[in-house]
Design a protein around this nucleic acid. Structure first.
Lengths: 126, 126
DNA sequence: TTATTAATGCAATCAAGTCGCAATAATAAA
DNA sequence: TTTATTATTGCGACTTGATTGCATTAATAA
């Protein structure tokens, strides 16, 4: 099944690129120029994740956020970094440091989700 | 507003104690002896979190899990540990190690949510 | 034993996300 | 360039997790 180049796809990609942050579905919806259906946005984002273009972050608000994969080679994704979600402005960012968590004997890691929420640089000043 | 000692409260507390793990609302519902309304269970659990009796974990499945606070003093909660969710059996456990993540200048941490999912000891054998 | 009000049960509601299906449009083929 | 193929979209319906309003129940205080 070959992927096609559609307008929604391009627009969503642009928004993600320009923001440089992790965005939730509704943030994306409100920032893309053309009106696009909710379901479509979700489908595009899920395809991006399948294709290794974005990675998915589940916030402590229970919502999904999507961020571009930057330093990931196609084959081996490295996403063992924390994300920071600002409870004031809603911004979700990737933190630099890669983290390794020791797992007990016999445990097999499959996905990593590290999230800290609080106030970001801008919002903590107010 | 003073808390009262009710049956639901006791039963939910018991289930959490006996399991020693983090449980989701539906796991709790299926394990308590008396039939209790969904909403009640949520309310009890939320109260527990407010009172520092449990802490809340948001899984990468988007669901909330609740675990007893063990080593937390009333005033200062230490929850900077990871949780492990088994995608096979659904079990959510607290991992031992406390983690410290360096935050960039100006960022204020308020809550920590670290979750790794994969296969637990038992399920990785199969 | 009675009064007070926290907690419950029920139904309605909300929100995030998914799915089926017919219509649309991007690409391949003629 | 035109036609055929099928990935993608839009819409509505639906699922699931969680919350809320309100009348009723029951734990505690008086």
């Amino acid at each position: 099944m070959k992927r096609r180049n559609t307008q929604s796809k391009q627009e969503i990609l642009n928004v993600l690129k320009e923001s440089g942050k992790a965005l939730s579905h509704d943030m994306i919806q409100s920032e893309i120029p053309s009106k696009t259906d909710r379901a479509t946005i979700y489908r595009v984002l899920n395809r991006f994740c399948d294709d290794g273009i974005t990675h998915r972050i589940v916030g402590d608000d229970g919502k999904q956020y999507f961020a571009l994969c930057l330093d990931c080679s196609q084959k081996k994704h490295k996403h063992n970094h924390f994300h920071f979600r600002c409870i004031e402005c809603g911004k979700v960012e990737c933190l630099e440091n890669e983290i390794t968590v020791p797992l007990p004997e016999g445990y097999v890691s499959q996905s990593f989700n590290g999230l800290i929420s609080g106030l970001c640089k801008d919002c903590s000043k107010l």
